[in-house]
């Protein structure tokens, strides 16, 4: 069921079955619109035969020089459609787009407590590049892992040599 199609504004009206999940953030409208306007190719949704949204991925390309990379801003799959390889194929799509854009790597942030996601990213070939302290505000604040996977352009895999020290949110570029 992994036919992906570009995410459209109207999908925001029916993504609640996915977004009410506790680990999925619902952002302000402008945030989504900005992604749709700037990186429409990076915002894809998977729809079920019955018309429900099964999951979506939202990302962007940014950075200069050898920091030019794809970034996963949000990835989420509805609880009813998990463990069917959906997240894997959404990630696959984003990696393909990043390859075509000649990115050096793909990265993402994930809560250190989100074992399911971290495990999944590991299985998809991502490594923990560094820890970002208190990246997620809340009570208490939570650290993030900045995870990465090199693209083919980074032949020497320079982008995925882990940092030895954690960084603060204000120090990430």
């Amino acid at each position: 069921m992994t036919t992906l199609r570009p995410f459209t504004c109207d999908d925001m009206y029916k993504f609640n079955n996915v977004n009410l999940d506790p680990l999925t953030e619902t952002y302000g409208l402008s945030f989504y619109m900005q992604y749709l306007a700037h990186w429409p190719e990076y915002f894809q949704v998977a729809e079920s035969p019955s018309g429900d949204i099964m999951g979506y991925i939202m990302g962007k390309a940014e950075g200069h020089g050898d920091n030019w990379h794809g970034h996963v801003t949000a990835l989420t799959v509805s609880p009813d459609y998990r463990r069917l390889g959906l997240a894997a194929s959404l990630m696959n799509f984003l990696e393909d787009v990043s390859e075509r854009k000649r990115a050096y790597f793909v990265d993402l942030f994930v809560r250190v407590s989100n074992k399911v996601a971290i495990n999944m990213y590991n299985n998809l070939g991502y490594i923990v590049y560094r820890t970002v302290l208190e990246y997620y505000s809340g009570d208490p604040d939570e650290d993030a892992y900045d995870m990465r996977k090199a693209c083919s352009r980074d032949v020497k895999q320079k982008s995925v040599i882990p940092l030895t020290h954690p960084v603060r949110p204000e120090d990430i570029d």
């Binding site: 619109m33 749709l36 306007a37």
Partner: peptide, 20 residues
Amino acid sequence: SSDHLTFSYKYGSFSKLSEF
């Protein structure tokens, strides 16, 4: 919402204009 229209022009995402 009219800001989003101007972004679309700025980034050239013309296919999104009608949708917006």
